[in-house]
């Protein structure tokens, strides 16, 4: 078991993203540091477009995350609906 994580700048763009991650990944933990928030979980972390769209009330393109992302760990698999970080074993 290894941890994966994603860190985002703390701002109004990333607030709903963090909220969505925590809703979709019950085991994920958010660690708030100056100017950034780091969300980690064991093995897998999924960010879902639909959950974010519900929170912000507009269409959302997952690639928008790029603007506020600081760093991440784990293998990424991204398509229109999901941004998934995981380790393979």
């Amino acid at each position: 078991m290894s941890k994966v994580f994603i860190a985002l700048q703390t701002n109004e763009d990333s607030r709903p993203i963090v909220e969505a991650i925590l809703a979709d990944n019950p085991l994920a933990e958010a660690d708030y540091q100056p100017a950034m928030v780091k969300v980690s979980a064991e093995d897998t972390l999924v960010i879902k477009r639909e959950t974010i769209e519900e929170l912000i009330g507009r269409d959302y393109d997952l690639q928008e995350i790029q603007v506020n992302m600081i760093t991440m760990s784990g293998y990424l698999d991204e398509d229109e609906d999901e941004f998934r970080l995981s380790w393979k074993n």
Partner: peptide
């Protein structure tokens, strides 16, 4: 994050802007 903590808005902004590419 330390730059932010020390009130250096300029550095933290270029730093995180760069880091968004680093991912």
């Amino acid at each position: 994050s330390g730059a932010a903590y020390n009130g250096d808005m300029a550095t933290v902004t270029f730093g995180f802007s760069a880091q968004s590419d680093e991912a």
